[in-house]
C-alpha cells in the first residue's frame, strides 16, 4: 500500500473485525462439531449441483 487509499474503508469497520473474527471462530467450530456428529449418524451432505464450486470444475480451458 504505497499510495493513499481511494475510498473510506470505515475505521469502525476495521476495529470491529476483531470481534467479527472471534464470532466467526465460534461459528466455524460449532459447524465443524455438527458436521462431525452428522458424519457419525451417516447424514452426509450431498454436494449441490449448480453450486459455486461446481461452476469451476472440469473446465477444459483451465485444466
Amino acid at each position: 500500500m504505497n499510495y493513499p487509499f481511494y475510498f473510506d474503508a470505515g475505521l469502525g469497520a476495521m476495529i470491529a473485525q476483531a470481534a467479527i473474527a472471534a464470532l466467526a471462530g465460534f461459528v466455524l467450530f460449532y459447524k465443524t462439531v455438527i458436521a462431525v456428529i452428522k458424519g457419525w449418524l451417516g447424514m452426509r451432505k450431498e454436494k449441490k449441483n449448480g453450486s459455486f464450486d461446481s461452476s469451476y470444475e472440469k473446465d477444459p480451458e483451465n485444466n
Partner: peptide
C-alpha cells in the same frame, strides 16, 4: 444469527466511529 449480527448490526454500529475518537 452471529454472522448477520456481526456483519450487519455490529458493523453498522461501528461505521460512524471516526478517527477523532481513537
Amino acid at each position: 444469527n452471529p454472522i448477520i449480527y456481526s456483519h450487519i448490526h455490529l458493523l453498522s454500529k461501528f461505521q460512524d466511529k471516526n478517527q477523532d475518537e481513537t
